[in-house]
Amino acid sequence: MTAPRRPECSVPLVEVSITEFDLSCLPETGAVLDQLLALRPQQVVIDLAGCRHIDAAAIGLLLDVHRRMVRAGGVLAVRNPNPRITRILQTARLDQILPVHNDAGAAPAPATEEAAAPAASAAPTSAEVAVLPAGGTPSPGAAPRAAAYGRAAVTVRT
């Protein structure tokens, strides 16, 4: 008996802006990323422009998300880390595993040949998830769907 075929990517791009990314907020961030991966995105971009610190637990979570994305035929990329976070990512050699971009306008490129051929999107929609600190303000024009995750709030736009 063969297993039912898993649907291909249902969302072409999900962008996540993370402002706190360390052990103290990892359960909330992990829950958000689990929900995000349930969308079966073709590409996930984690924007760290507003993030001041990343620790080993957060790097472990990035590696887990990367592994899950590659298995699903998708690509995970990191965008706009500050110079300190860039050095941490380089020290952990994470920059050799997944794309790290410093230009907000640059489209992430696949880091491996496995991720180079993601499946075609089934739906021409995209979603943006912003992980904000408690009391943070969602992006203007955000859809009314928002949920709180401890010290983080998530806003999804399609």
Rank of each mutant, 00 (worst) to 15 (best):
V129D: 00
G105C: 14
A142T: 11
A115W: 00
R87Y: 01
A72Q: 11
A134P: 03
N80I: 01
H66L: 13
L98E: 03
Q96T: 14
G73L: 10
A120K: 08
T125P: 01
A107L: 12
A120R: 09
G74E: 06
A72H: 11
A104L: 12
G136W: 00
V78G: 00
D103Q: 05
A134L: 13
A77Y: 02
D64P: 03
G141C: 07
I88T: 05
G136V: 02
M69F: 04
A109V: 10
V75C: 02
R71I: 00
N82R: 06
V129M: 05
V70W: 05
P108M: 04
L76I: 07
L132Y: 01
P140K: 04
M69L: 09
A130C: 10
G135L: 02
A127L: 02
P144N: 07
G105P: 04
T86G: 05
R79D: 08
L61Q: 07
R145T: 11
V100F: 04
V70L: 04
N102K: 08
A146Q: 14
A117Q: 10
P81Q: 10
A123Y: 11
H101A: 09
P140N: 10
D103H: 02
R145W: 14
A143K: 11
P118C: 10
A142S: 12
A116F: 06
A123M: 13
P83T: 10
T112P: 08
P108Q: 09
S126Q: 13
E114D: 12
T86M: 15
R84G: 13
N102I: 08
V75T: 09
P138C: 05
P133I: 09
L63V: 14
